[in-house]
Design a binder for these strands. Sequence first.
DNA 1: CTCGCAATGTTTATGCTGTTAACATGCCAA
DNA 2: TTGGCATGTTAACAGCATAAACATTGCGAG
Lengths: 201, 201
Amino acid sequence: MLPVLPVPDLPMNAPYHHGDLRAAALQMGMERLASQEQPDLGLRALARDLGVSATALYRHFPNKDALLDALALEGLNRLGRNQAQAAAQAGGGYEGFAEVGVTYVTWAVENPALLRLIYNRIGQVDLTTDDPTAMGEAFHQLRAGIAAMIPDEMSKDQRAAAALHAWSLVHGLAMLILDGQVAYDPEMVRKVVLMTDFKDN
Amino acid sequence: MLPVLPVPDLPMNAPYHHGDLRAAALQMGMERLASQEQPDLGLRALARDLGVSATALYRHFPNKDALLDALALEGLNRLGRNQAQAAAQAGGGYEGFAEVGVTYVTWAVENPALLRLIYNRIGQVDLTTDDPTAMGEAFHQLRAGIAAMIPDEMSKDQRAAAALHAWSLVHGLAMLILDGQVAYDPEMVRKVVLMTDFKDN
DNA sequence: CTCGCAATGTTTATGCTGTTAACATGCCAA
DNA sequence: TTGGCATGTTAACAGCATAAACATTGCGAG
């Protein structure tokens, strides 16, 4: 009794085969990226894991780049939320500033392929796409999250320089770690981040 | 009189077709990298430009990765020499430190594909290769060039942290510029680099 | 001087990739 | 109920790295 019969009315059991592929592709793509180091995906392998034909994805994405852009945008939103949350939780001043920086590096270490994908894709966004401002908007949010920790009493130019300094520092440190040039160590990250001088030069 | 006859003893006139391919491949590869943004090479295109068959390169390199590794190593040596020269020319102290940092970013802006190739390749060097220490040695030289500008009176730990800070900062800034996140401006670079505080925290 | 071998280059072939076109299926609206 | 549109599949193409078999060249030993 209680046989498991296929219910055609409920698309939740089979969400993609005749349901919401694209969402499934994006989710599977994110899982793939989460479990590997390099941001190389491969349409055929992805379709195979989805139990779908290789060319089915072309009904939902014009090409591979569009799929990767969508994944990069999702990753960028996650990163932006992560930074905003860290900025909100952290106290003000120098200590909080370091906390946000450590958060960025930690996220990068935990999501290497996603971080790489974000910066790989952002450089070559086609502004003629249907949603041209999405990427730029998400990056603006990331910058805002970083800039939130800069002391208020600084001049506008100084604030911009400080924000760029902070971004460059944590991004470079993250990249060096991801590329295997330096081992990840939260203590070391904090120490390195705290070597920033907000005084005017 | 004085006819230009083919001198078979001098391989300089036709260096590759029956001469020194491999050297020609590396040279052509470097030229290719110098004239483009992305470090994607393509064996077939390279062989075509060399006027040689697609598979001819396999007589001199076990595979594409080996070719790219060789190019990355050459690029790393150039970068290391560039930094060493800058460290030697620059005065000591804070100002000289900034000069070396600006030099790194400038070189990266002028050699985008090469810088990307270096950091792409270094992460996955196979230590079982015939020359395992070449890459590590070149990177050690680069680190030494950066560390040369750190004040002498600092403790060993502080020196290490300061060197890592400097490397992360300039590398991250260079990457953000190469990825189109921030426009290149030498003044801005110098200002950002000078926001480093060597005092102990 | 010549013969033979090793180094070097070419041709052919294999399996991978992204991508397109032609064909099939299924759901929803008129 | 039926026609059309969204979605999926199959077949095919070009380009990629790579391997195997074949061709050629040049150099060194006899």
